[in-house]
């Protein structure tokens, strides 16, 4: 049984953590071939070849594949699909853009955000913002699956797969890239960070978010935010943790001024230790917190920052 895994490649660079976690899940299904696609993807291909569990790497370089546009990427994957029973990827926004398109081209259902592999046809996935876990069995000949990376450990890096270069599919030329707005940051990446400090509506302003960031930097943490904080313009969209944002499961998650709507809990309740700081003692976040502190965050967060380390 062969598995084609779409590696996460951004601007020629492999997102190792997300890809290596998806490899762990994919290896349960069969022999894994990793596809690295991009305008430049050779370096990503070399990096993917080192992931344990990858037996072969395909590198497809073409200008049309340069900005992770769905149409040419899906066309490429569909053209390769004949050799594989499973087509998989980490459940990133790129993969969620591409995989359903691939599935429809192949006339099969997509199975998104899988959190557990039962067997080659049967998968567990959260539904209703993680308020239920559903096990589904596919009757399709090919399974197109994205894996929720927060539930799988990353595969090691002692592999040595062979690398083969392939061509792109014909570019449907339906869309073109204009620009990426990506904030440069020295902080760890949100979905793979060991510690995450998140702020919510209670933080009150974009300026006050500096409190959250200072605490995060003290802890070497990534910064997250609730939907309310992002909607209010306190934090950028790529910091959002929750049902429709990022799903994180760090060793330590510190929720500051976050009430704990189910949509937010969906994105962080698998964290190992949860700390909540909120002045409303009735806030639902305290129901999932290991350590809750009922306090004004404007007093407690600076004090905590000072007393740590």
């Amino acid at each position: 049984m062969a598995v084609l895994l779409l590696a996460e490649v951004t601007d020629g660079e492999l997102a190792l953590d997300a890809t290596a976690k998806a490899v762990t899940a994919a290896a349960k299904l069969g022999d894994v071939t990793a596809l690295c696609a991009g305008a430049n993807a050779a370096a990503a291909g070399e990096a993917a070849a080192k992931i344990e569990g990858v037996s072969k790497v395909l590198v497809a370089e073409d200008a049309s594949l340069g900005h992770r546009l769905a149409e040419p990427t899906a066309a490429l994957i569909a053209s390769l699909a004949g050799d594989y029973e499973h087509i998989v990827a980490p459940a990133t926004t790129d993969a969620k853009n591409v995989l359903p398109r691939v599935a429809a081209l192949l006339d099969v259902m997509v199975i998104s955000d899988v959190s557990g592999v039962v067997d080659g046809n049967t998968f567990e996935r959260p539904i209703y913002a993680g308020n239920a876990i559903q096990t589904v069995k596919s009757s399709d000949s090919k399974k197109v699956v994205s894996f929720r990376t927060s539930t799988f450990d990353a595969a090691g890096e002692d592999g040595s797969a062979s690398v083969e270069t392939i061509g792109a599919a014909a570019d449907p030329a339906l869309s073109e890239w204009v620009e990426d707005k990506v904030a440069a940051s020295d902080r760890p990446e949100l979905t793979s960070a060991g510690v995450v400090v998140s702020g919510g509506r209670g933080v009150g302003s974009e300026e006050s978010f500096a409190l959250i960031e200072t605490l995060a930097d003290k802890l070497g943490a990534a910064v997250g935010a609730s939907r309310a904080a992002v909607d209010s313009g306190y934090a950028p969209n790529d910091w959002q943790v929750g049902q429709t944002g990022k799903v994180v499961a760090p060793d330590l998650y510190v929720a500051v001024g976050i009430s704990g709507a189910i949509q937010h809990l969906a994105g962080m309740k698998d964290s190992k230790i949860i700390v909540a700081i909120n002045k409303d003692e009735e806030a639902p976040i305290f129901q999932v917190a290991d350590f809750g502190l009922v306090a004004d965050l404007f007093d407690a967060v600076p004090e905590l920052t000072e007393k740590l380390g």
Partner: peptide, 27 residues
């Protein structure tokens, strides 16, 4: 449907935590 629903379960609930009284206690 192409996907048969084999089962649906509640996610594991987190064990209840504790409230701490101060930042010192939290640390």
């Amino acid at each position: 449907p192409r996907l048969e629903i084999v089962g649906t379960t509640e996610p594991e609930a987190r064990a209840a935590g504790i409230k701490v009284g101060s930042v010192d206690e939290l640390v």
